[in-house]
Design a binder for these strands. Structure first.
Lengths: 268, 268
DNA sequence: CCTTCCAAG
DNA sequence: CTTGTAAGG
């Protein structure tokens, strides 16, 4: 069994003050992918930076207090890679990849964008550079007999079932037609699988992010933007997937909730 | 009797969340002078901006979130004046004056300075402009049969007894020779009286400010920089003066403590 | 160390 | 609404 959890921590230092460590201690995951760490390694409290029993690797952004991804693994990775070969994005704390026996796991934090602004252009540039990388990653992995899962905050909802207020958000970043189409190409062209949706084809959500504004969380006005996007060989072995909403995760140490998938693989 | 309290609130919005209103409700003062309000009037919660039974007047700084002084009076002032006729400082939220029957009360927030920097030059420019104003204020008040008290955060200690660590602070802003000498001129040349010191000539302190850093408050490593500086006719009528340190003011909703003087005057 | 600001989300 | 940063104190 390989259990993988992905969560956008919205500032690991803030999360550390609100219960990240007890949550991690209670986690059964073999791999935890973090996004929006928003800190350099030295700024992170030691018990969070190097918790007992975990190997941790961080890819902070060059800009202080921004983005930043990390991977926590129970076994030491065979190989670690920061970025995906993009001059613009490799120092932006948005992509970190590690090889474990038979599987490559990545932590991705795709830019959130803002419709009609330069931020949205940046998001599109990231998407444009990242899709070919995903294609090549899958090809190299196949040649190597490996599987791949790219976990993280993709900041895009593919379908209406992926966000509660899809009608009012058709012109919002995260649910723009161009973004939805691009995510469709990750599945149809690059051949990856949205694992949680594959296991829960007929549910609304499960959402993984609720804005701190208004009563979004209480009203479950959420978005399913935190995904595990895997090669079909791995996705086919997914046996269970869930999002830790309030019931199981009442501390709410982030505006995102952890997304966990159990894959029927030998332990890595 | 006229009871006057002066306190640097270090952000009235923060103070409001930590107990300013109950403190004010329990105050016997007729006049409360505030410094470092750090807000525009509209940003202040209504119960703090216009508390039942008080007239309030604010002099915010042009720069958002900086400085700002206020006067709370039980009777409506006969006249209010923002600034002291200085092009450089009148919009800096550092001086506010009000006439009550027979007495002029001012709230002053003198720049804190920083030794060897432009901030210190600004402090000296303020001091240079303010001393002649104090002289004129006293003369006009005398011609008018009025008394004067200038309350506030003067950001200067006059004597060694005014700060616990005077030895280590001889090169620190607030206890520089030039600053001490200037405050001496407020007393000796302009003819004002440091009311709390006059009533407590032989005590260390009483301090009114303790840095939030380290254990300054617990160690009582304080500075007596919050003063009531009055004309002799008023100072002579001071019957009681105290600083509300932890015992009487345990909430600590500011890094400064309120300084109160009771003057033996008819109620204003 | 604390309180504002601002940019970002 | 919350996280960081930075300046100011």
């Amino acid at each position: 069994m390989l259990t993988v959890t992905s969560v956008n921590v919205n500032g690991i230092r803030a999360a550390a003050k609100k219960g990240f460590s007890p949550w991690l201690a209670g986690s059964d995951a073999d791999v935890v992918c973090l996004q929006e760490v928003r800190a350099e390694e030295e700024q992170i409290p030691l018990e969070v930076r190097k918790p007992e029993g975990w190997h941790t690797v961080f890819a902070p952004a060059a800009a202080k207090g921004r983005a930043g991804v990390a991977l926590y693994t129970r076994r030491e990775p065979e190989r670690v890679q920061v970025g995906f070969g993009s001059a613009e994005f490799d120092a932006s704390g948005r992509y970190l990849e590690a090889d474990l026996p038979g599987v490559t796991v990545a932590s991705l934090y795709l830019p959130s964008g803002e419709a009609g602004t330069e931020k949205q252009d940046e998001k599109y540039r990231f998407m444009e550079a990242f899709l070919p990388y995903l294609v090549g990653l899958k090809e190299r992995a196949a040649a190597d007999g490996r599987e791949v899962v790219v976990c993280g905050d993709w900041n895009i909802c593919h379908r209406e079932a992926d966000l509660k207020n899809w009608r009012t958000n058709r012109k919002s970043a995260g649910f723009l037609p161009e973004e939805r189409e691009w995510l469709g190409r990750v599945y149809a062209e690059a051949g990856y699988v949205d694992v949680v949706r594959a296991l829960h084809p007929d549910t609304e959500g499960p959402y993984s992010w609720w804005s701190y504004r208004g009563r979004a969380f209480d009203n479950d006005a959420g978005w399913r933007i935190d995904l595990q996007v895997a090669t079909p060989g791995l996705a086919d072995r997914a046996v269970k997937a869930w999002v830790e909403r309030a019931e199981t995760h009442p501390e709410r140490w982030s505006d995102h909730a952890p997304v966990t998938v159990v894959y029927g693989l030998g332990a890595v």
